[in-house]
């Protein structure tokens, strides 16, 4: 057999992507999507996250709420399995884990900066920033799009090999990131709570 099962799957995926790209409506480009995303001033959502970590026997499940306020405020609060809080305001990160709060600036954690900026720039529709950190490829149509982001920076790529954001219109529905060490995180976003704080 010329094709192993893995190669076959990859082949099918490529075919699927080609088909998907063919369906990409004319005029649906990165700037168009970004412009739509940039119009969102305020958004809140519930999320469920499944994390596959190589050193664990089972995937980690968590859920909580996300909120975003243009241009640069993001909060992720996890309720289950334990309360955690992650707030990004401007350049300052406040992280509460195990009841302890840490503050640091993005410049102190350049690798994390790339990761966080990726998500935030997508939300804000900030194309220049996004392109600064990532190589971008967009597929689909406005009603259902997928943005694949590969970091330029080697250090960032070591942590986060590829990130895939799926969305519908101006809403993001799923963020899937794969780490170089084989870990994978899938976050499903359900944008139902409008304008909740």
């Amino acid at each position: 057999m010329i094709f192993g099962p893995n190669t076959l799957i990859r082949w099918l995926t490529i075919c699927g992507l080609v088909l998907l790209c063919a369906q990409t409506s004319r005029g649906f480009t990165l700037p168009t999507l970004m412009a739509r995303l940039a119009e969102v001033q305020d958004a809140s959502a519930r999320f469920t996250e499944t994390k596959h970590v190589p050193i664990l026997n089972i995937p980690l499940q968590s859920s909580g709420t996300l909120s975003y306020r243009a241009p640069d405020y993001i909060r992720k609060t996890t309720f289950a399995p334990a309360r955690q809080n992650f707030v990004l305001r401007g350049n300052i990160v406040t992280l509460t884990i195990n009841g302890k709060t840490k503050h640091f600036t993005l410049s102190q954690a350049p690798q994390l900066a790339g990761l966080v900026e990726g998500v935030r720039a997508t939300l804000a529709g900030d194309l220049p920033t996004l392109q600064h950190y990532y190589e971008l490829s967009l597929s689909g149509r406005l009603a259902h799009w997928q943005l694949i982001m590969r970091p330029h920076n080697v250090g960032l790529a070591r942590i986060n090999a590829v990130m895939c954001v799926t969305g519908a219109g101006d809403r993001i529905t799923e963020i899937d990131s794969t780490s170089a060490k084989g870990g994978e995180t899938i976050m499903q976003v359900d944008e139902t709570i409008q304008n909740a704080q």
Partner: peptide, 21 residues
Amino acid sequence: LENGLALLGSELGDMAARTLP
């Protein structure tokens, strides 16, 4: 180990996965 598990689930999870072992 409990703290480590919580850390793995957080935003710092990817970094923790590299150092925890």
